[in-house]
């Protein structure tokens, strides 16, 4: 999908993701510096804490835009199928972990990790689905 550089939708996707990643790094630095040196409190603390999450939400919107703009129906179907598989895998993992947290007190799964875990599963399922359609 992303390898097809002559695909306008994929090109736009890569550009938008790069921009949101840049914003993520910027916002994260701002938040970390603010919390380390200025110890904000109240509403400002909440706003600064949520700041790095916003570009991550933006990345999801960017993927949604890609699915809407992609003209190649097969690529779109593969992308959607990979999303569904990674949804199933992520929910399975968090449910198993949740019961382990409950019953045998394994360490708490930091919620921040669920988003990258989802994309790891996406990265695993994408080539498998691609191979099936070949």
């Amino acid at each position: 999908m992303i390898g097809c550089t002559n695909n306008p939708a994929a090109r736009r996707y890569v550009r938008r993701v790069a921009f949101t990643m840049f914003l993520y790094v910027l916002f994260l630095v701002v938040s970390v510096v603010a919390f380390t040196h200025h110890r904000p409190t109240g509403l400002l603390a909440y706003v600064l804490a949520v700041l790095p999450a916003l570009p991550i939400l933006g990345m999801m919107v960017v993927f949604g835009l890609y699915l809407r703009e992609e003209k190649d129906e097969l690529q779109r179907a593969i992308g959607v199928e990979a999303l569904v598989w990674s949804t199933g895998a992520t929910l399975s993992l968090t449910t198993v972990w949740g019961f382990l947290e409950n019953f045998v007190h394994v360490p708490h799964l930091q919620l921040m990790w669920i988003y990258p875990i989802f994309w790891v599963f996406f990265g695993i399922s994408m080539p498998m689905i691609n191979a099936r359609y070949r």
Partner: peptide
């Protein structure tokens, strides 16, 4: 993913 990400950063900060 939106809720867990936002909540994750609130947990962290």
């Amino acid at each position: 993913l939106a809720v867990t990400t936002v909540w994750g950063y609130l947990e962290a900060f």
